[in-house]
Nucleic acid binder design. Structure first.
Lengths: 403, 403
DNA sequence: TTTAGTTAGTTCCCTAGCCAAACAAATGTC
DNA sequence: GACATTTGTTTGGCTAGGGAACTAACTAAA
């Protein structure tokens, strides 16, 4: 795909080809099964060109012809689908108490989803690399056994990852300035596929953008609901990382100078008043990271039981969250803000208040068309997004080499 | 230029040509005077290709050869510069008490800058169209007299402009749902050039991005300092308007639930605690819009005199502004936030506090490399940006027809 | 069972436009 | 004056998209 960011690059024919291959690939992904004629009619490409592009994609085993034809008047069409079998993209998520690995095929279908407990909170980045490498090797060998070529691997990290892929700060993991991608690639001994690192919120946003129910929204924001609150921002169809890669740090937007003290030392941060910690501070002040999930389950149980104080607490958190999301909606005017992480199980008691608060504060008419939704991808969104990151580079025309 | 937003479009050779023409044009703009050989060496395009592209651009009178050559070893180079003379881009800004029109040539050099007083605050959109059309006609005829072809006209409006160019709400002007662009084009009777409308903050951001001292920053935010506070957001080298075009409405980010009441009815909005109105509420509570400039001059005078209460007031506003900018910097991680409008004359007393507050709140290491700067383009930034908007479409390869 | 009609996909040719290499032009240097 | 150096043009080759004609494979109707 021909892009023109910071200092436009000149284009040549290979760019045209790459762009058009990507166009066809994406069209088939969205509209499979479909015929060459469909592609030509919908994309505006010439029939001959489509035939040539499709042949190329079939050669590279990205597409496959199905025997099926449509029975209407005229010559029946040879239908095309994405070929799921020959490739895999791997996503890994490191977190405070576990490492998750997922692998997906080109269609985004999950091939495996493994979770290992891992004391991320008390391990060094080096130890994490060892653990990730071990897990990655097993995933890769499984993929190889299934005769799949691995297209790439991306690691999702809860922390600030700069544009060059260095993990600058990961507060919950206690890491600083770790070249996770480089070290992991080294540990995998020249794996033959790219190894990347990115922020978990960014990748979860990517997952929503590619697989979620709002995948046709070109502008969306994904909000993580963990102890930290972060956002991944997709504008005009692409992840926007900002100048150094640190965009989306909405957790420390100050909502109330008289609010509770945040772990960052200041007062009334979004994270302090609407993060998961703000709930647990009331219900289980001493919970360790590994007990988070259990504690949230307990909160859900009590909310279901209709316990007044819990409901009031959640309403309060919802309202604060809504105020934060109003800031996001006012600043970026996305089509949808998607709440993820622990906000998902708590959504039934949060969203109504949050929505009310948000819509009351968004200046644009009709709230700027911005909806507040709950993620349906579950806790694995970041890992899935990490895999989606790999697929994205295929989609933008960097196809695997021809057989 | 080949773009691939919302549903990628297929590319063909004309796109390659357009992309490369734009590459050459932009290179010459940045590096004039320069030779064909320079262009080839720096862009990576082939010498032959550059010659052909340059010939095309000279044909369209976008470039011009200067007789000047560099005297080094070897054949002297024919130097190329942008041809300023044959074209003009027009920008118009409507505001509460005046209409400004500027015209610039391809280099961005100001050809004229006219200001008419106009009671925007009490006029209908229809009346504004009449006034703008009258002004525009005079500008066009002046340009025609100078033998310049007008490439386009853009109107900057302080209000919410949707993606289709309709002015949805302009609070200070009292307009709603006005098709300014359509009506103005009609009033100009098929002018033969495109007429567009956009938000003033967006266009000022564009002006900074093209002409300002931070023009090489691919990620920047421009903040208007009027009674209303709005932002224009440039990410990855392009203006980001959000889903419906309403991005940048930072004026109503709530900073303090216990703060003063904002004109939007809520409390503690950025605009209410750090807008120009927050200053004038203390110094000249009954000032009319047309007296704003005078009142600000008075504030500046008193600050220069070292009046304690004024300095304290400005410090306070600066701190609130810094808190708002921290939210922006945390969310978007731009390379620079540029303060415009009335913040410019007040900057000496605002910026230090604002910076301190901002850096204290930005989570990213080193503040994410985000600087807080003051606009150097003056009050005309929006009008200039409106003209820049026209030049942008030339830059992206939509060249004026060949002679 | 033809025959006509319709749609799908391929083939052939043309053209745009990039690149590489050779070459011509214009200068400085020894 | 020979040679080196750099600029810009010319020529030819290649990639890849578009258009039109053609073949293929089916349905429908006579």
């Amino acid at each position: 795909m021909i892009t023109s960011h910071n200092g436009p690059q000149p284009a040549d024919f290979t760019d045209v080809r790459a762009t058009n291959l990507a166009v066809v690939l994406r069209f088939v992904r969205e509209n499979a099964p479909c015929s060459r004629a469909d592609i030509a009619a919908s994309t505006g490409l010439n029939k001959a060109t489509v035939s040539s592009l499709v042949a190329d994609l079939i050669d590279r085993r990205l597409l496959r012809e199905t025997g099926l034809t449509e029975h209407r008047v005229g010559r029946p069409a040879t239908m095309l689908v994405l070929d799921g079998s020959p490739y895999a993209a791997i996503g890994i998520e490191v977190n405070v108490d576990y490492i998750t690995a997922v692998a997906v095929d080109l269609k985004g279908e999950e091939l495996l989803n493994w979770r290992r407990s891992f004391p991320g909170g008390t391990s060094s980045a080096g130890q994490a690399v060892v653990a990730m490498a071990a897990l990655a090797r097993r995933v890769v060998s499984r993929m190889t056994k299934e005769a799949r070529q691995v297209l790439g691997l991306t690691v999702a990290v809860p922390g600030l990852v700069d544009v060059s892929g260095i993990v600058r700060v990961a507060p919950n993991l206690g890491w600083r300035d770790a070249d996770l991608a480089g070290d992991l690639a080294k540990a995998l001994r020249d794996p033959g596929f790219p190894v990347l690192v990115d922020n978990d919120a960014n990748l979860a946003a990517l997952a929503e953008h590619r697989f979620g129910p709002h995948r046709n929204a070109a502008n969306l924001v994904y909000v993580t609901g963990e102890v930290g609150v972060g956002a991944g921002i997709v504008l005009d169809g692409r992840l926007r990382r900002g100048g150094q890669g640190y965009s989306g740090e909405i957790g420390h937007i100050e909502l109330d100078p008289a609010g509770p003290t945040c772990r960052c030392g200041r007062r009334g941060c979004l994270e302090a008043v609407a993060g998961i910690g703000a709930i647990l501070a009331h219900t289980a002040p001493d919970a360790s990271p590994s007990e988070l999930e259990l504690e949230i389950d307990e909160v859900v149980r009590r909310a279901r039981n209709g316990e007044r104080d819990i409901l009031a607490l959640l309403e309060d958190v919802g309202r604060h969250l809504g105020r934060g999301m109003a800031a996001v909606a006012n600043m970026l005017n996305p089509e949808v803000v998607i709440l993820g992480g622990y906000y998902v199980p708590l959504a039934p008691w949060l969203v109504a208040c949050a929505e009310e608060e948000m819509y009351g504060r968004v200046l644009a008419p009709g709230g700027g068309g911005c909806r507040l939704e709950v993620s349906t991808l579950g806790y694995g969104a970041a890992a899935l997004g990490a895999a989606a990151r790999v697929l994205d580079s295929v989609d933008s025309g960097r196809l695997p080499a021809q057989r």
